[in-house]
């Protein structure tokens, strides 16, 4: 096998795995922004909160990060419902989502980040788990379990949520609220309650996304910001509200970033998402699957 071709293929494969992980990071925003039209730019900060919860449980009690995520799910769900309630009462009801609603989430982002800095400092933190370290070797191909496990967990979560939205009554009500809040009101369902549930779900995904983030890489409080551009690039590129488009966009971005990091150096990778975002907004704001 030629060296540079091997490099290329490995970069593509790790990009695919990385992209699968990006889907887990983005799905919360695909729900809140894509379906509910709530621009929760603080989402990455809550993903990091999930990472630090996994870190604490792992270092203090030796619990597996993925298990922690499952245990923490209900708490994140409730936290999300609470945040939505504040958002609804303060901004949505007053029709003041754009200026003050956005600033509210920006404030949350900052408060969460600084609070994490105050508690944990700016050092990188990491977790211990049996699947961090070893790799699967398939010929010349190297599959680090550190990337493979998050990829599988992420895909499981996306499929699960997709099934929930299309099969369950509440899920279909969420889809309906995304299409037309007025129609739902006519059906005598309470759109605010449905949105609260959906926003709670979007927060719950942060618990899982946070756990697999700290499996993939050590974290420190400010890396959440790197993910803002990435997440919104993925959601916009994927066409808002469509999970399949979002997964395609996430994998695409993962591969492009991985190639950029391999051939130009990792310090250039964060710029990729911005380029993708700007080009999408300028050329095709409805996303790759949009009409």
């Amino acid at each position: 096998m030629d060296g540079s071709l091997g490099l290329l293929l490995n970069a593509v494969v790790s990009g695919l795995l990385l992209g699968g992980f990006y889907a887990a990071v983005s799905i919360g925003v695909a729900i809140s922004f894509g379906m509910l039209d709530i621009v929760n730019i603080a989402h990455p900060a809550f993903i990091l909160l999930g990472s630090y919860v996994a870190y604490l449980a792992n270092t203090l009690l030796g619990i597996d990060p993925l298990l922690t995520a499952v245990i923490a799910l209900p708490a994140f769900y409730l936290l999300g419902m609470a945040v939505y309630q504040v958002y609804y009462l303060s901004f949505e009801r007053r029709q003041d989502q754009s200026l003050r609603g956005l600033s509210f989430f920006f404030g949350l982002l900052f408060i969460a980040e600084v609070t994490l800095v105050l508690i944990f400092g700016v050092d990188y933190r990491l977790v211990q788990a049996p699947y961090i370290g070893p790799s699967l070797h398939l010929g010349w191909l190297e599959l680090p379990l550190r990337l493979l496990v998050p990829f599988l967990v992420s895909m499981l979560m996306v499929v699960g949520l997709q099934l929930f939205l299309t099969r369950s009554f509440t899920g279909r009500a969420i889809e309906a609220v995304a299409q037309d809040p007025l129609a739902l009101r006519l059906m005598a369902a309470d759109p605010t309650r449905i949105k609260r549930v959906a926003f709670g779900l979007s927060f719950a995904t942060a618990a899982i996304a946070g756990a697999i983030l700290i499996i993939i890489q050590p974290v420190e409080p400010s890396i959440g910001r790197e993910y803002i551009g990435r997440i919104f690039a993925i959601c916009v590129l994927g066409g808002l509200g469509s999970f399949s488009g979002m997964v395609i966009a996430a994998v695409t971005l993962g591969v492009v970033e991985s190639l950029t990091a391999t051939f130009f150096g990792p310090s250039w990778a964060p710029a990729v998402s911005f380029g993708v975002l700007l080009v999408t907004l300028a050329v095709r704001p409805s996303g790759i699957l949009g009409r």
Binding site: I41, R225, E226, G229, W268, A271
Partner: peptide
């Protein structure tokens, strides 16, 4: 010019990403 034709939130999101990209450029 690129983003102000769209809804305001897209402009806001693009500016968030702009901060990251300018930082990347300066860092390099």
């Amino acid at each position: 010019y690129l983003t102000l034709r769209l809804r305001g939130v897209f402009f806001s999101i693009a500016t968030l990403a702009l901060a990251v990209v300018v930082q990347t450029l300066i860092t390099n």
